[in-house]
Design a protein around this nucleic acid. Structure first.
Lengths: 192, 192
DNA sequence: CGCAAAATAGACAGAGCTGTCTATTTTCTT
DNA sequence: AAGAAAATAGACAGCTCTGTCTATTTTGCG
């Protein structure tokens, strides 16, 4: 019996295809028939691994959350030991993300948007990611000597989400750079 | 012959009902049949006024853009003559908006999310609103003596969009207050 | 090699979607 | 009041949606 947590080749392929199509066109815009056709997989294969389309989406968001945060952590580690450089590495990571050919906004903001109800499982899963990112930022802010790391992390979180929306609207990376500059100013103020 | 720009009672009622349902549940989640049933209007009435569901959505976004900006302008005017107070009035307006019982995120961010393709008419219409708001902010920043009003307006725009996303995720108004405080700090720095 | 158990394919059901068509009613002008 | 023009109602077409069911194939193990 395939437990949801166990990975299988078919399941992984299905999730990769679903991710690509959902991220490109949106959750409600993409039907499972299209995903199955593109993945070359049968319908019952999907429903043996996931109870519903909604559970598939939740699983995809959780996977993307893990991978995105791991990617940011790797970029921070690669930035060296300076706490300031480590925090600002997040914004360099952002700029690289915005400039990628496949960038199409933040899947979590888009999930919040498509499932706007607060109690919806997809909505809650998407917001959980934002909370986790803010906690990660708070640790970096604390290491950088901010007097109020939680407060600074909150502000940086807002800036980042705004920058993502702007990058999605303009298809340019400029918002990452201006956000980086603002973050540097705020950090200097907060550490003083 | 009813030209699209001319308002008629039926058309207005249709748009009000469509707005309520789209904003509550999302554009793709709401079918026109539901809108027509709730509005008590026939299908051809809709298609005589709008060529398609897409055009209806565009018209709704343009209407919301006009009304939202007019509302912000009114709040700014009511704030008096002090340029700083006028700029910060925008953030008080935000806090009141977030606290409203019907608040369900920013319809323009949600439209960008549901129609993620850059060339889509709905996507472009939604982004046009964000550009217009930024221009409004730039005027307020200039009046407040900012040395780089465009740059400050860009940063405040990002903060505002981030605050809206956070308010949608948490259903709390706190992001408006923290954004207001950050804006005050940045304005003081920029005017020095 | 043979058998049992899991995975799979593809048809199917029932509902919902956008947009069209025609007959009827309402409205406006003379 | 009469006739012309516009607005409307409701059925309809064709497609797509999610999720189910059953028959078949594949896989794993003794």
């Amino acid at each position: 019996m395939p437990e949801p947590e166990i990975s299988s080749p078919k399941r992984d392929h299905l999730m990769a295809t679903a991710w690509r199509l959902f991220y490109r066109d949106g959750f409600r815009a993409v039907g499972i028939d299209l995903i199955l056709a593109e993945a070359g997989v049968a319908k019952m294969t999907l429903y043996n691994h996931f109870a519903s389309k909604e559970e598939l989406i939740v699983a995809l968001l959780e996977k993307r959350d893990r991978e995105l945060r791991a990617s940011v952590v790797a970029a921070v580690e690669a930035a060296g030991k300076s706490p300031t450089k480590r925090l600002l590495a997040v914004f360099d990571w952002l700029e690289a993300w915005f400039g990628g050919v496949d960038f199409n906004g933040c899947v979590f903001i888009r999930a919040l948007s498509e499932y706007p109800e607060a109690t919806h499982a997809i909505h809650r899963t998407a917001w959980n990611h934002k909370v986790a990112v803010k906690q990660m930022l708070a640790q970096l802010c604390e290491a950088a000597g901010a007097t109020n790391p939680e407060g600074l992390a909150e502000t940086l979180s807002l800036l980042i989400d705004g920058a993502i929306v702007a990058a999605h609207g303009t298809r340019e990376t400029g918002s990452a750079r201006s956000t980086r500059a603002t973050a540097a100013v705020l950090l200097k103020l907060a550490a003083a």
